Amino acid sequence: MSARRPYPSDLSDARWELIEPVLAAWRFERRRRALDIGRPPEHDLREIINAILYVDRTGVQWRYLPHDFPHWNTVYGYFAKWQKDGVFAQLSGLLRELVRQQEGRNASPSACVIDAQSVKTSTSVPATSQGTDAGKKIVGRKRSIVTATLGLLLAVLVTAASVQDSVAGTHLLDQVAAAHPGLRKVWVDGGYRKHFVEHAATLGIDMEIAARAPGTRGFTPIPKRWTVERTYGWLMLHRRLARDYETLPARSEAMIHLAMANLMARRLTGETTISWRDPASPNEVHIPG
């Protein structure tokens, strides 16, 4: 890696050790299939992933990447290739298994939580991939995620905000059930309709609606569902996710997988996540659980 001053978003040596094998395997496979296998690699993969993390954490436009990173066009090219080849989802999945094992859990979960979040979009997002969430009065996109009970991401689907929660949830549940055959329980909110309950039953999964207790006033964490809400809070530490800036929904999903991979890598190495929220320290706060 070049001798530049590190940014707070840069990978530490410990986190790079967790991520490097996946990126090195990707490069080896790409070069194995390429005709220029004799040519040495031109770019440092650690610097490339550091630059992508910088975008994810700060929300800066690709063209505004600091000049001590590789050229923004090169960085974006790697980001696009890694998204297309599923590298970010692979990283997220591998690190999730390591965190679960560290917590004394089975690598594959038996229960999960599904929720959706509607967000506004930037002017770079095509109108054809947007919609209106009538309930929340938001024009933009919807992020539907599935998390295990520890709040770790299992799957994500980005759609137009007009897509009904049950429709997106059905696609996600199929994906998660195929990847985790031992899944037997899912918690959702009241926005998921009867056909989603019936679909879950056909997969051998018991669906339960976790709702606020009658008469509850003010903010009260909802049993089981609070974990997925906490996950959205973790994701919001990455300014790129404050709204949807990506032209393609698949690129939005990649940014979410990368954010979760970054958080889980920090959790595995015991490192802190930088935030402005901690009054005791202007630079760091530890993300629990």
Rank of each mutant, 00 (worst) to 15 (best):
P6N: 07
Y7C: 08
P8G: 11
A14N: 10
A14Y: 09
L18E: 09
I19D: 00
P21R: 12
A24E: 12
A25W: 03
W26M: 10
R27M: 14
R32Y: 12
R32E: 11
R33S: 15
L35E: 15
I37N: 10
P41F: 08
P41R: 12
E42I: 08
L45V: 13
R46P: 02
I49E: 06
V55M: 11
V55G: 02
T58F: 07
R63K: 15
R63G: 09
P66I: 13
F69Y: 15
W72F: 14
V75D: 01
Y78E: 03
A80H: 08
W82M: 01
Q83L: 06
A89M: 07
L94P: 03
L95Y: 03
L95K: 03
L95Q: 04
R96N: 12
R96A: 08
E97K: 13
Q101G: 14
E103K: 15
E103P: 04
G104M: 06
N106C: 15
N106W: 14
S108G: 09
P109V: 04
V113L: 02
D115I: 01
D115R: 01
A116W: 01
T121D: 00
T123I: 10
P126C: 05
A127L: 14
S129P: 04
D133T: 12
D133Y: 08
G135L: 08
I138S: 04
G140W: 02
R141G: 03
S144G: 05
V146Q: 00
T147N: 08
T149I: 13
L153M: 13
V156R: 00
A160T: 05
A160N: 05
A160C: 10
A160S: 15
A161P: 02
V163I: 07
Q164F: 04
Q164E: 11
Q164M: 03
S166R: 02
V167R: 02
H171P: 03
V176F: 01
A179D: 08
A179W: 05
H180Y: 12
P181K: 11
D189L: 07
Y192A: 01
R193I: 06
H195Y: 05
V197R: 06
T202H: 01
T202K: 04
I205T: 01
D206R: 11
E208P: 05
A213L: 13
T216H: 12
T216N: 09
R217E: 13
T220W: 11
P221R: 09
P223D: 11
K224L: 07
V228S: 03
E229M: 12
R230N: 10
T231R: 02
G233A: 15
G233K: 07
L235Y: 05
L235P: 02
L237W: 04
R240G: 00
A242L: 14
A242V: 11
R243K: 14
T247A: 07
L248P: 00
P249N: 10
L258C: 06
A259N: 02
A261F: 04
A261W: 00
A261S: 13
N262I: 03
N262Y: 07
L263W: 02
L263N: 03
M264F: 09
M264G: 08
T269E: 13
G270E: 10
T272Q: 15
I274F: 09
I274Q: 11
I274L: 13
S281Y: 10
S281C: 15
N283A: 15
V285H: 09
H286P: 05
H286Q: 14
